[in-house]
Design a protein around this nucleic acid. Structure first.
Lengths: 123, 123
DNA sequence: CGACTATATTGACAATCGTCGATATAGTTT
DNA sequence: AAACTATATCGACGATTGTCAATATAGTCG
């Protein structure tokens, strides 16, 4: 284990105590990848706007309504909806020609909790 | 303003009430972009691991220690540190040949608060 | 000075992402 | 059946990202 540096660090002698291979993250690369994926799905303006519209329209909204709400064309809306759905953040119900989407609030709440406590570890 | 759909939606007649252009997100494209950028900087496993190591080593850690802690080479470590620093999440202090980084906890705490309340709006 | 060290930057490259036109799919209406 | 509609998928394209070897920069030691 690497010793904690003093708050006002003194330069080490050249080569001395440097590049200690014992320094490790408590987050494994695998876990970090999963958390990063969680952040990734939220890291796009259109997906955030879609979530917002879906959340505000308590219930269901069809794709053509969503298309009117964001600055991209219909295939791109479907693309982002697919990503959100793959992440479990929204659900789809098909009725006739329409597809009605809604936020999966429990999943989103758990995601929020996980991300928040991840960040709490750092701050 | 668009009427809220009933929880059990009935199919609309063809063409009727569809693609209502009044549907809008309460988040502007600009604001959504800023929040997305906030998520983006956290959406990489190496950056998460770097934050973790920096947070755990209360004080300062030099780049070569960080390099030992993540599965990428030194130029890539510097690259991610630069991104984290550009986002204000970490700070750098140069001492002799070494660069000591530490988490900017107030900034990180504010970021966490902003992201959490963004998600709270959706859930 | 010259040899060495830690970090940053550059430049190239592969991989991934976001977008959209075109098309496919599946349903409705007449 | 044919015409029409909403959504999904495909395929291509440009833009962005992540990575590393090589190099630059800047500091230390002798």
């Amino acid at each position: 284990m690497r010793a904690v540096l003093p708050l006002a660090p003194t330069p080490r002698a050249l080569g001395e105590r440097c590049c200690d291979p014992g320094t490790r993250s408590r987050i494994s690369a695998r876990d970090a990848g999963q958390v990063a994926d969680d952040f990734e799905v939220l890291a796009h303006p259109v997906r955030l706007q879609l979530l917002d519209v879906l959340a505000r329209n308590e219930g269901r909204v069809c794709v053509c309504d969503l298309e009117a709400a964001v600055p991209v064309k219909q295939p791109t809306v479907s693309h982002h909806l697919k990503l959100l759905r793959a992440a479990g953040l929204i659900e789809r119900e098909k009725v006739g020609l329409w597809a009605y989407y809604r936020v999966n609030r429990p999943v989103l709440a758990r995601l929020r909790e996980r991300l928040s406590s991840t960040l709490a570890q750092f701050a």
